[in-house]
Amino acid sequence: NGRCSIVLVFFLRCLLCRLFPCHQQKCGFRKVAKRAESKKEAEQAEMLHKRELNPQMEPPTPHHPGRSFGRLVKPLVFTVGFTGCSFGAAAIWQYESLKYRVQSYFNEVRADWLDKLRPQKHGDLRKQVNQWWNSLSEGQRSVTGIIVANALVFCCWRIPVLQHAMVKYFTSDPASKALCWPMLLSTFSHYSLLHMAANMYVLWSFSSSIVNLMGREQFMAVYLSAGVISTFVSYVCKTATGRLGPSLGASGAIMTVLAAVCTKMPEAKLAVIFLPIYTFSAGNALKAIVALDTTGLIMGWRFFDHAAHLGGALFGMWYILYGHELIWKNREPLVKLWHNFRTRGPGTGGSGSL
């Protein structure tokens, strides 16, 4: 039960994009009236003409949830398929990582021995970077790639020529033409620097705990799956309520990480970075966050994507309590299949072993 610093600030831009056509065509009814038509006939003609133009002049009515839910079939299939592929790839990654470590053990020993014989270079930038990298925990090294990816996407938002593509593929919106890939790409997308800094700080703070709890490979599968699952929950809630609009940010996936750590270690002491003298248990922090997002979802608050937060938190709690046993511990058949494929492939000379 270590003491951690946590920033519970999640900013999500929720932009409601609806276009209300307001053009009106005025035909020459006054001229017709001037041609000695009676006032009654002119009014009847004008009313008839307005009825004909009515579908163009009235603002579009909200989509009926029953019709809109049909658009969620494809995102649902993508969510299930991507989650399965993520955990399958993580299992194979773990297998290859273990195999590499065993095979390269003596090579690393030999490299260390040769490094000691070579004259040491002082002030070498590469050596300093290696020393910094080696000083990081395994969890911090695991999330460094995620942070770099978020920083690159943040820079892409500042390139004017990419704005259309960024809005289309790096924001998730159930009303958009692109539905599936934005569910993943929006997890790495932040338009505000403060939004990105807060999310990445929380991820960095909990990186060691979550990787020690799950391992590097399993953590990456959970994080990527959480981004897609939380976005799908947001899709469902937006479609049901009719409050459509784009969302972006890693908050849903980070809520999964936060919920997983707090569920596994509910007695761990947390503190707000601005008030480090006030500590509270991780379990109470998780309950407060879930209660806040539930209230925001019921009340219709639009400052945060509360549905995505709740989806991420519920997935994190479910995975720690049940998902680890149901998914990760049942990866052995896939690993055996991959092992047989690797050892009986061309040029292996028969069956082998790890």
Rank of each mutant, 00 (worst) to 15 (best):
L152C: 10
V261A: 03
W318E: 02
P266F: 02
A313P: 10
V257K: 01
T231D: 07
T231Y: 05
I289D: 01
A197Y: 04
K121S: 12
M317T: 08
P174T: 00
Q94K: 14
G345H: 02
A226D: 03
S192L: 08
D112M: 07
N199P: 02
N340W: 06
V7P: 07
Q44M: 05
V77K: 04
A42L: 05
K264A: 10
S38T: 12
A175M: 03
F20G: 06
K34F: 07
N130A: 12
V148H: 08
S230P: 07
T144E: 06
R30A: 09
L194S: 08
W113Y: 14
D305N: 15
V102C: 08
L213K: 14
F304E: 13
T294M: 13
E52M: 06
F304T: 12
Y100A: 04
P75S: 06
A42H: 03
R118A: 12
F11Y: 03
G66Y: 03
P75K: 05
W113S: 13
R67D: 07
S353F: 09
G316Q: 03
A198W: 04
F315E: 08
C156V: 08
P246I: 00
S38H: 01
V109M: 12
K287H: 11
I327L: 11
V167D: 14
F232Q: 02
F69C: 00
K26N: 03
V335L: 05
F304L: 08
V161T: 14
L270Q: 10
S68L: 07
L337C: 11
L184K: 01
V9D: 12
A89L: 15
W338M: 05
G311D: 07
P174K: 00
M166R: 03
L136M: 15
C262N: 05
L193F: 15
W204C: 02
F341Y: 14
K177V: 05
M166A: 01
F280T: 10
K26T: 05
S142T: 15
L136S: 06
G139P: 13
V228W: 07
A259K: 02
C237F: 12
G88H: 07
R110S: 12
A33D: 10
A226F: 04
P266C: 07
L72P: 10
S104K: 13
F341D: 02
H195T: 06
S172K: 06
P160A: 00
K269M: 14
P174Q: 03
P60Q: 06
A259R: 05
R71V: 02
V161M: 12
L224M: 15
H122R: 14
L152M: 09
R141C: 13
R110E: 15
H49Q: 10
E96M: 04
E46R: 00
G300Y: 00
L48M: 12
T231R: 05
L185S: 06
S205L: 00
T256H: 01
G296N: 09
K287R: 11
Y191Q: 11
A308P: 11
T187H: 00
V109E: 13
A111F: 12
A36P: 01
W204I: 03
A175P: 01
G66T: 04
W318Q: 01
R51K: 15
V167W: 10
L270P: 07
G252C: 02
F219L: 07
F274P: 02
S353A: 10
V109F: 06
R51T: 13
L16D: 05
T231N: 15
N107C: 05
L184P: 03
L16A: 06
Q56L: 15
V7L: 08
G28N: 09
N1Q: 10
S234G: 10
